[in-house]
């Protein structure tokens, strides 16, 4: 029923697309984790200005479509003299967009550690850094890892946006294969299959961790 020649004659396109999708997702994940951590620290810092900046950042990017963020990098920046190709703009857009969600996950994780524990640790003689290192962060990580895995999952799915700005990802190559085969159903069935190969293990891992941490926590 499914025409396998779609895959066998274009496996190279699918493979390059899959590789680029994975690459873009990993880079955007690393970037958004770093950026998200900074924003989360801003949001819980006692300094009002930083707090406001952090909040504005999160609210802004949570309420604007990813496509618009990518267009900003792709079409908006050149107006200011910075030209980036589709892959780079797409990945940067993904990173900035996802960092807002990761910042929220990290903030929630840190806030979930009861204040009393911090106070107890501090009064027993630990410094602020030690308290963070030995008391707050180990607990926060347990809370934060499942939602961040989830964000990574979203990131892989959202990376399909690269296809719209000639970003050479799986979706983009799927379109090219389709232009060659005129077989829309089978072409995109295989695209879907390749996405599932990336996302299903992540979904499974996220659920597994949620369960394990729920038990031990």
């Amino acid at each position: 029923m499914i025409d396998l020649t779609v895959l066998t004659e274009h496996w190279e396109s699918y493979f390059i697309g899959l590789r680029n999708t994975l690459f873009a997702s990993l880079m955007a994940l690393a970037g958004s984790f770093a950026l998200g951590t900074v924003i989360a620290v801003f949001r819980i810092s006692p300094i009002k200005v930083l707090q406001a900046c952090g909040t504005a950042y999160v609210e802004l990017f949570r309420n604007i479509p990813l496509l618009l963020v990518v267009y900003m990098f792709f079409l908006g920046l050149p107006a200011l003299g910075i030209a980036l190709n589709g892959f780079v703009s797409g990945t940067l857009g993904l990173m900035v967009y996802t960092s807002a969600f990761i910042a929220e996950a990290i903030r929630a994780g840190i806030l979930a550690v009861p204040q009393g524990q911090t106070e107890a640790a501090r009064s027993s003689g630990l410094t602020y850094v030690q308290t963070m290192r030995y008391v707050v962060l180990p607990q926060a990580v347990k809370i934060v890892v499942p939602p961040i895995t989830n964000q990574f999952l979203n990131l892989v799915k959202n990376s399909s946006i690269l296809g719209v700005v000639a970003g050479l990802d799986l979706m983009y190559y799927g379109d090219l294969v389709n232009a060659d085969t005129y077989n829309t159903v089978d072409t995109y069935m295989f695209v879907a299959l390749f996405y599932l190969i990336l996302t299903l293990p992540l979904a499974y891992a996220s659920r597994l961790m949620e369960r394990r941490f729920a038990r031990s926590g």
Binding site: M171, L196, T199
Partner: peptide, 14 residues
């Protein structure tokens, strides 16, 4: 599980 783990862009096009 399958639908949740596919890109929406793909679903719209499909």
């Amino acid at each position: 599980e399958i639908i949740r783990n596919l890109p929406l862009l793909l679903l719209i096009f499909f």
